[in-house]
Write a protein that binds this DNA or RNA. Sequence first.
DNA 1: CTGAAAGCGCTAACAA
DNA 2: TTGTTAGCGCTTTCAG
Lengths: 345, 345
Amino acid sequence: MITLDDVAKQAGVSTSTVSIVVNNRHVRGVSVSPATRERVLHVAREMGYTPNSLARAVATGKNRVLGFIKDDLAAELAMRIMVGAQQECEIADYLIKPFQLSHPAIASDLVRKCLGQRVAGIIVVNLPDDALAIVLHEAKTAEVPVVMVDSPSPNASCIQITSDAEQGVRLMCGHLVEQGHKRIAFIGGPADSVVSQERKRIFRDACLEYGLDIREDMIVDTSWGETDIVKAAVAPLLARPVEHRPTALFCAGDAIAMMSVKTARRCGLRVPKDVSVTGYSNASYAYLCDPALTTVAQDFVEMGRIAVRHVLALAADKDCAAKSAIVKVPTSLVVRESTWGPDWV
Amino acid sequence: MITLDDVAKQAGVSTSTVSIVVNNRHVRGVSVSPATRERVLHVAREMGYTPNSLARAVATGKNRVLGFIKDDLAAELAMRIMVGAQQECEIADYLIKPFQLSHPAIASDLVRKCLGQRVAGIIVVNLPDDALAIVLHEAKTAEVPVVMVDSPSPNASCIQITSDAEQGVRLMCGHLVEQGHKRIAFIGGPADSVVSQERKRIFRDACLEYGLDIREDMIVDTSWGETDIVKAAVAPLLARPVEHRPTALFCAGDAIAMMSVKTARRCGLRVPKDVSVTGYSNASYAYLCDPALTTVAQDFVEMGRIAVRHVLALAADKDCAAKSAIVKVPTSLVVRESTWGPDWV
DNA sequence: CTGAAAGCGCTAACAA
DNA sequence: TTGTTAGCGCTTTCAG
């Protein structure tokens, strides 16, 4: 591997000159003559010189890298967030290093590993409260800013980027009542999922606001992905006599919506003619399925971008410690084929 | 940030002792006494010391990091590969740094950026031939091994990990003929997609082997994700009189399969009763849709794992340069609800 | 405008 | 068993 000194020697200048040139740094006015600059650049290219970012980082004490910690690497959502983060990093000339938190118990080690890379900041996706607390603690002593994305964790003292659930579920509820629905069931995710519970809570509020009765027997918890659980919860609802049957299913996630659609069909119901079904998140497959899902789109890539902007800002200030805020990024309603007015009533 | 020297001073030992302890390196036999070792460790923990991996990397000239270059960060498949890569990296105590190749034109700069991080190796996912060639060239002069994952690129001189398409499409064809299908249509992806064309080629071969006529009028190219294009290609096929209509649709991808199912329904056909539809890849949503997709599963996470094993092996040997091989990882057939024997014939 | 020299935090012989 | 010393490749004053 060819080094800066090699280039200097070859070009017959000192290392500092080369350093200045390759970083094209202008220390007070124009420091290095166009002639030498050109020569140095030429030699560098000739020799195939690639600056060693690591050495630079140790010399400056600044590493243009952001840590990205998530618990479940595979989740589509985490990936979209990462895409956004990466986009923003690219324009800021930063890099991302992902860390996989396979088990909450190793959170502490993981953060130290991350810190060991002397990251300028940390972006954390969807960590459980306890793991987040650990991350926050370790990061604070190292004075590295962290911002959390996507999972609402109200009493964590860091800045959090989350999609606006208040707005999102209201948007969808509004859409449904606008279409004339009166009996809307809420098909939630797991009982221990904070995002599901949040959506459920807001759903109740929204129902009240829209003057709908909230019927507890139409509010169920299920699972993000297990067909049997969803089916077991949804089928009974749909098997009710038509006058007690929900005319719409507000599902807490797109996968749940798809499983619900399937269940509805098994119950002999057509979607959306007999029952409307809505999703949440606008997953990649939401437009592919039949019927295409009406859903609320969360802009994960934007969330990722915002996250790095914030973490970079914190890193720039030195008062990166105590700041704590929640920024909510707006969602949007995407109406497709799975909702329809219950005009058969 | 507290350093190794700080610890040394505090513990009243030399830096090298601390270095040995924290890396728990045993130079010939037991070098540092349990007593001092314990003390150093204690002090280090007390002071909250975190080793600076960057400094270590520049000192040793070895960086335990792998570059991960992909063209489309969002693709679910790339993500699964990355999950596998990360799993394997974790056990080897390596880290991953992802690089986003937004445009083939910047391939050269991107690789240099990657090389600038002094990565020990590069994993490349699904790059077009020209971009790959550039990567290979830059990497070779830097003597950094690269392995390619997923996209078959026969004449590239690097080792490639790919899923066994020969086996995969034959598996599916076998399933279909076993169920009695005789008129199978091939619904491909874009005409310029190498994986789609590869599957098409093998599909033809497989048909021959199974004694089926291959009917060129039942082999079409479409798009990976655009509903209109797929519909335009599939609808005419399905509109044919029953004796000329395909009884099964071999789709080159899961999304295409879903769009085909939808099209079939619009044509008044039931899936799988009237027409069977198969996917390829086993995307996350393949089991969610209705009917759940029969598809061939590609083990992307395994591919990712294999990739890092290979790149690490190459990095260990110094003859990392010229090696070139294709390792095919087996696929598996997952039969779900979208296929059925054409017993109505 | 350019060079010499002193680090950055850590490792790795080699002495002691 | 431990300390001394000389780097790794780069940046950054400060003189020349």
